[in-house]
Design a binder for these strands. Structure first.
Lengths: 346, 346
DNA sequence: ATTGGCAGTCTCGATCCGCGAGTGCTAACT
DNA sequence: AGTTAGCACTCGCGGATCGAGACTGCCAAT
C-alpha cells in the first residue's frame, strides 16, 4: 500500500473529472478531452503534468503508453471517500421503487425477493440481499406437527411472518395431542423471545412430567442449534444486467463471479461483515478478499426489520460504475425495504 | 417443415457419426475424418455424396462452403428419435448423486435445491426444477396464527412437509382462541384432502355459528384461490457451467437466456407442459417457442412426490450436447429425487 | 508555474496473403 | 449402378504488414 499522498485542490478536481468521464464513456480519458470539457482555463500540457503526477502516486493508470488515463482502485477509493457528489434518486426511480413494493406480497421472503428485483433493476447491476438473522428474531408462534410417531415437524413463526421449519426425531413415540399440548405451553412461555434467549431459559419452563420435559429440551436444543448452523441465504437478481456491461464481454470474468453467486457461502461471509450503523459501505476492486471480485465493486448497506434484526442489501457491479447514483439507489431501496418490513406487523 | 424423408441404413449411420463426432469435438466434420474414424470400408468420395444428400434433405448443414458438416435441428431430432444409443449413468456419477442426496435436508425445498445442484453438476449444464403443484397436494395440517385482531396467518403443511403461508384479513376481529378452535376443527375435516377438493366440500364442514362459518369460508376461499394464481417457482442452478461451453463465448446469447431464467414465468409455462407418463422429453433448438432458446436444447422429465403430485426436472444446454449421457443423467437424478421425496413421510 | 510545439510511442482496424481443409465434379473402375 | 481416385476450386483463418489517429513526454519559450 502506498502512503496516503495528500492531493492539492487541482489534482483532486482532475481526478474527479477523470473518474466521472471514464464512468460515463468507458474510454481512457486524455489530457485534451479534460482541458476541453472540464478545464477550459488550463492547457492540455498542464493537465498532462498533473496526470503524470497522479499516475506516479498511484491514483491513475494508463492501459498502454499512448492512451489516456483510467482510475486505479486507489483512485476510485479517493473519489468515493472525498470527491463524490451526494446524489439523490430521481423522482422516476423513487416512483418505480414505491410502486414495485406496493405490489409485493406481505411476507418477508416476498418482500426481500422484490427488493432484490427492484434494486437490480434500478442500478442495472446484480443485487444482493441477505435474509435477516434468524437467531435474533423474536418467536411469535410455535407449532408441532406429528409426522410419524417418533418424528415431529417444528414450525416457528418469527417476526415478520418468517417461517422456519425443521424435522426432529424423538426417542419415544409422542401423539399429536401431546404435541399440541406442548405447543400450547411453549407458545405461552416463549412468545416474544429470540431463539438465542430461549436456550438460556429452559429452566423457566416450569415443572412438568420428566418425560415431556425431556422432549421439550430436545426440541428447544434442536431449534437453537439448527438455526445457528444454518448458513445465511443470499438472494441475488439481475445477472442479465451485468451481461450488458462492456467489461464482461469476455466470459472468463463472469465465470468466477457466477460461481460466487451460485454457491453463496463466501458471499454470505462478506455480507455479514457490513456494519449496521454505517451508512453505505463501498468495497472496490482488489480491496475485495475474493479473487472473483477483483474487477468488481460492492455497494452495501443494511436494512432493518425489527430493532435488533437486520440484513444486508446491496449490489455488485463493475468497478467502473456511477457510484453516486448507485449509492443513492441502494440507500433508497434499503430504506424502502425497512419501511415495508416495519408495516408487516410484529 | 420438410416432409419426413426416410433415410436408408447407411445415411443413418453417417448422420449418427456426424452428430457423435461433432458433439465431442465441436468442429464441423469432414468426409475424410468420417472415412478414417467411422467408415474404413468406404472412401471419402462416397461419403461426400451421402453428405451432400443429407444436406439436401435438411439433416445437415455447412457453416461455409469449404467446411465439414454439422447437424441441423432436424438432424438432432432424427438422432435422438431413432439413432441415439441408450446409455447408463456411470458408477461414479451414480455415487455422486447418491452421496449428495444423502446430505440433503429433509424437506421438499431442500431436496429440490439439492436436485438442481447435483443435476447441473453432473450434466455440466443449467438445471431446472419446478416445485410440485400445490393444488394437487394433500393437506396434512393447518394452523391459524393471529397477527393483528383482524389479520390471520394461515400455515398449510402439505405432503412432504411443504409449507405454504399466507396472510388473510378478516372482516371482524377474531381472537387466537377462536382461531385455534377453528384450526383444530379444520384439521379434523381437512386432513388428507387436496386444496382443490377442499373448495368443493365446504358444506361438509358441519353446522357452526354463522359467524365462524363466514370466517371459515373466507379462509378456505383464500387458500384455494391464492394457490391457484400463484405461479410455479422454477429453481435453476449451474449457469457457471454454461459459461464454459464455447457456444457462449459471445455474451449476447446468454443475455436472453438469463432473462428467461431470472424471470421464470415463461419457463414455468414450458416446464408445465411436460407430460407425466412420457419418459424424457427433448426439445431442440428452434423447436423451442422462446427465442432465447433458439440455440439451446431442453432435456426434461418429471419427478413425483406422491401419486398425483409431480414436478418437472431437467436441463438447458447448447444444442450440441451429448444427448445420450444427458438423458441418462437427467433420468437418474429424477428417479433419485422421487425416491428421496417418497421417504419424506406423507 | 504554464504553455505551445514536436517527435515519439503504441493501439487499432483494414488489408493482404498463403495455407490447409474440404468440397464438388468427372471419368474410370468393379 | 454404385464406388472411387484424381483434381481443380472455394473459402475461412491466422499472421504479417501498414497507416491513421490518439496521446504522451519533453523541451524551450513565456
Amino acid at each position: 500500500m502506498l502512503e496516503p499522498t495528500p492531493l492539492d485542490e487541482r489534482k483532486q478536481q482532475i481526478l474527479k473529472a477523470v473518474v466521472s468521464d471514464y464512468t460515463v464513456t468507458g474510454m481512457p480519458v486524455g489530457s485534451q478531452v479534460l482541458a476541453a470539457k472540464y478545464f477550459i482555463a488550463l492547457s492540455s500540457a498542464t493537465i498532462r503534468n498533473e496526470l503524470a503526477d497522479l499516475v506516479g502516486t498511484g491514483y491513475l493508470q494508463q492501459p498502454h503508453t499512448s492512451a489516456g488515463r483510467i482510475p486505479t482502485d486507489r483512485g476510485y477509493r479517493y473519489f468515493v471517500d472525498f470527491l463524490m457528489d451526494a446524489e439523490a434518486a430521481s423522482p422516476t426511480i423513487r416512483r418505480t421503487v414505491k410502486q414495485e413494493f406496493e405490489s409485493a406480497p406481505r411476507s418477508v421472503d416476498g418482500i426481500l425477493e422484490k427488493a432484490a428485483m427492484v434494486l437490480s433493476q434500478v442500478t442495472e447491476n446484480v443485487s444482493l440481499v441477505t435474509a435477516p438473522e434468524v437467531s435474533e428474531s423474536r418467536i411469535k408462534h410455535i407449532d408441532l406437527v406429528s409426522l410419524e410417531p417418533q418424528s415431529v415437524l417444528i414450525i416457528l413463526v418469527l417476526e415478520g411472518n418468517l417461517i422456519k421449519q425443521q424435522v426432529v426425531h424423538l426417542e419415544r413415540a409422542t401423539t399429536q395431542e401431546d404435541l399440541s399440548r406442548m405447543a400450547a405451553m411453549l407458545n405461552q412461555k416463549v412468545k416474544g423471545q429470540t431463539a438465542d434467549e430461549l436456550s438460556g431459559r429452559l429452566d423457566q419452563l416450569g415443572p412438568d412430567r420428566a418425560e415431556q420435559r425431556r422432549i421439550l429440551e430436545r426440541l428447544i436444543e434442536s431449534i437453537t442449534t439448527h438455526q445457528a448452523q444454518r448458513q445465511t441465504v443470499v438472494l441475488h437478481d439481475g445477472v442479465r444486467n451485468l451481461l450488458r456491461h462492456p467489461e464482461f464481454v469476455e466470459v472468463g470474468r463472469l465465470e468466477e463471479l457466477m460461481e460466487l453467486l451460485e454457491q453463496g457461502a463466501q458471499l454470505a461471509t462478506i455480507l455479514q461483515q457490513v456494519e449496521f450503523d454505517k451508512d453505505v459501505e463501498i468495497v472496490i476492486g482488489r480491496e475485495n478478499t475474493s479473487s472473483g471480485l477483483r474487477e468488481c465493486s460492492l455497494v452495501l448497506t443494511t436494512y432493518k426489520m425489527a430493532d435488533r434484526v437486520r440484513g444486508t442489501i446491496g449490489v455488485i457491479g463493475p468497478t467502473r460504475m456511477h457510484y453516486g447514483q448507485v449509492v443513492a439507489r441502494v440507500r433508497l431501496v434499503s430504506h424502502a425495504t425497512s419501511e415495508v418490513l416495519a408495516h408487516l406487523g410484529n
